[in-house]
Amino acid sequence: MSVPGTTAGRRSLPPARRGGADGGRRTVPNLLALVFAVTAGFPLYWMVNTAFKPARDALAPEPKFLPAAPTLENFRDALEVGDFWGSVGRSATVAGATVGIGLVVGLLAAVAVSRFAFRGRRAVIVAVLAVQMVPLVAMIIPVFLLLNEIGQVDRITGLVLTYLTFVLPFTVWTLRGFIVNIPKELEEAAMVDGCTRTGAFLRVVLPLLAPGLVATSIYALVQAWNEYLYAMLIMSQDNQTATVWLGNFVTSRGTDYAPMMAGSTLMALPVVVFFLIVQRKVAAGLTSGAVKG
């Protein structure tokens, strides 16, 4: 329980569930979980379902629960609007940079607040949490003016910088939870073996931090990939990101539901795939740090 990452997988098969009554004992939970999956999955299903329906069926008063004649037409339509690939590319760049920089910078700060004793430590921790409380909507004008002053309007770097402000606090808080859980003895042992402090950290602590890093990176990815308000504000049309691109389907003459759903399905896909790949690590990661208290 104290060493992150090692326990999660093993314990996920609870010993108490062994034995003959197994099948019967799972029926009720299975049913409940299915009800949840169907309910929570409904909006998703509706998005994907609409994406594959002919556009004229989208608003049928008698809803069609399966596309009678599945079509890729909406996807074609969506891809023709504006610059889909360009905006996805920029979103990926922004998300990648936010995740990468957020992790490195956040990790350094997390190490500082969890492995060093210094005056002002508590203040820093509290401040990092407190800055998350500022409603971002209220900051639109000041942030825009600042970015303008430092020449970062309509720049990817400007957007990354902005996203870092809401990714970093979370990263610092979460990683701190992980680091305090890693026994210092491990580092010390490595140093006795001749490692420098940095070397010990890289070789011993970092691997154990992997789940935490994965967890925070997913969080940062989802944030940066899905953010709308600041992306709209900071970037010009030529440099818009994918969420802003989705706004193209909303005109004063109505919303194009079907292509919009196709577009958002395309947008959600990479995140889901990435997520599924690293999901096991996330599950182990998000808590192995925090659980220890």
Partner: peptide
């Protein structure tokens, strides 16, 4: 914790996919 593996995978996919759905959408 209490469901069969296939249900768990299903629920996880639903969770993950809803998390990754852009708020606007």
């Amino acid at each position: 914790q209490r469901v069969s593996t296939w249900v768990k995978v299903l629920v996880n996919i639903v969770l993950v996919a809803s998390w990754s759905m852009p708020v606007v959408v």
